[in-house]
Design a protein around this nucleic acid. Structure first.
Length: 430
RNA sequence: GCGGUAGUGGCGAAGUGGUUAACGCACCGGUUUGUGGAUCCGGCACGCGUGGGUUCGAUUCCCACCUACCGCCCCA
């Protein structure tokens, strides 16, 4: 095998593409009910769009960006996530203008890129479905976005869903909490894992997220951000929780949950699914939160925002593991068997006529024997097989066989041409 | 980026330093000179991830690389 796809990429073959289409169309229908509209932004952006939004110290920016300099020496990055580009487009196209109804609600789907070591459900080119809503601080919006994510996953047949939420508060909250956390961790500096030692200075909140067992013990007694919320932040979070209860959406608060991207504040959430088939522990399929301040960061007016991203590959893995229903390629309506070279032009006319009547139709292209053609018709799950040989051609008739029952009848060729739908209906009713 | 496991036909899977690389499934063909889902028969890797090396000889030994999978990091 000479050529291989680049590391961490995947070919989505026809059988699987059907599932992808199903997921995307299901999402689009649901999002439309919530009045979120599609936006398509470039797959690459200027490096600064991401470095500015995600945070210079975030792992995404420091080690996972797929970036390069183009022939004009522009520093380009293949988008590692969807929000930054959408925010950039929101600002650049002035969607904050008064003529746009607020909140401006958008969704996107498409490939994202991160330069990291591939594993199952983790690729260098992967796909996300994401939503963003700009221009409202209402906790109602937080809850609607969360609810929409939950609904989508449920609609796609995922069960054992777990919603985990937390709040990062506002600027003042984070500042206060940051110093409190550092004050708590610094005396234990030597006990921290190597990774956490680095994180302590760069981004202390990330220490909370450490998988290291000793770190976790330390972190267990660390101050909670929930005790440092400003009154406004606390009240926002309270309202979000109350509204979730109003909608009877179960949730857990995890005060140590953080975000890999710096732009988040206030409500953050993750929707996880637990499935033994996917190994131990919970898998996060959908994650998001508020990012008031990001629009300003990218040069727009002060505009609050909130959104989520959902990993399509992970979702598919989950759906397969949980045996969620997935569509398959639709069965064939009609297969046309031609016997002998002389029938070639007639079978071509027949398949084209039937197709133009809205039925899926196929025929043999390999000059195979009738038996083989029937075998193929059977494999393709054809409902009806039309057979045409020299005799039929001379008599201007055709044999029509219903595969499920084996019934075969001769019908006039002109009936096929004049009114195929009627013919099809007549034979399939039996 | 680090550590580990693996890589044989479309798929699954045996195998050995040395004649024609098992077997199963799938596929193709025949048994039925124009009719499917059954049986039986036959066909199907000039090649064992790629490139080097050792050797009289390598799919089998060594090295490098590539890729996949698992763990770490991180995350969707």
């Amino acid at each position: 095998m000479k050529y291989q796809r680049p590391k961490g990429t995947a070919d989505i073959l026809p059988d699987e593409a059907v599932a992808w289409n199903y997921i995307e169309s299901t999402a689009k229908k649901l999002f439309d009910n919530y009045r979120f509209h599609e936006i398509r932004t470039p797959i690459f952006e200027n490096f600064e769009v991401f470095s500015r939004s995600a945070g210079d110290t975030s792992d995404i920016v420091t080690k996972e960006m797929y970036d390069f300099h183009d022939k004009g020496d522009r520093h380009i990055t293949l988008r590692p996530e969807g929000t930054a580009g959408v925010v950039r487009a929101f600002v650049e196209n002035k969607l904050y203008g008064p003529e746009h109804i607020k909140p401006v609600k958008l969704y996107y789907t498409g490939p994202m890129f991160r330069y990291e070591r591939p594993q199952s459900g983790r690729l260098r080119e992967f796909h996300q479905i994401g939503v963003e809503a700009f221009g409202s601080e209402s906790p109602n919006l937080d809850v609607e976005v969360i609810s929409m994510g939950m609904h989508l996953l449920k609609k796609l047949g995922i069960h054992n869903l777990k919603l985990v939420i937390n709040t990062l508060g506002d600027q003042a909250t984070r500042k206060a909490y940051r110093s409190a956390l550092i004050a708590y961790l610094e005396p234990h500096f030597d006990e921290l894992s190597e990774d956490s030692k680095v994180r302590l200075h760069k981004n202390p909140l990330r220490v909370l997220d450490s998988k290291d067992k000793d770190d976790q013990k330390l972190v267990a007694d660390a101050p909670s951000i929930l005790d440092y919320l400003t009154p406004e932040s606390a009240s926002h979070f309270e309202t979000v929780k109350n509204l979730l209860e109003t909608l009877q959406i179960d949730y857990q608060v995890d005060a140590s949950m953080v975000r890999g991207l710096d732009y988040y504040n206030h409500t953050i959430f993750e929707i996880m699914a637990n499935d033994k088939a996917l190994g131990k522990g919970d898998v996060t399929v959908c994650a998001g939160g508020r990012y008031n301040g990001l629009v300003e960061e990218l040069g727009g007016p002060e505009t609050p925002g909130i959104g989520f991203g959902l990993g399509v590959e992970r979702l598919l893995l989950l759906m397969q593991a949980q045996k969620a229903p997935l569509p398959t390629i639709s069965p064939l309506d009609v297969y046309v068997v031609g016997i002998g070279d002389e029938t070639k032009s007639e079978t071509l006319k027949i398949v084209e006529t039937i197709r133009n009547n809205g039925f899926s139709t196929d025929q043999d292209y390999l000059d195979r024997k009738p038996k083989s053609q029937f075998k193929t018709a059977d494999r393709l799950n054809a409902k009806i097989v039309i057979t045409l040989g020299n005799d039929e051609l001379a008599q201007k008739v055709v044999n029509l066989k219903v595969m499920a029952t084996g019934d075969e009848q001769q019908v006039k060729l002109e009936d096929v041409y004049d009114n195929f739908p009627k013919l099809f209906g007549k034979f399939l009713k039996k």
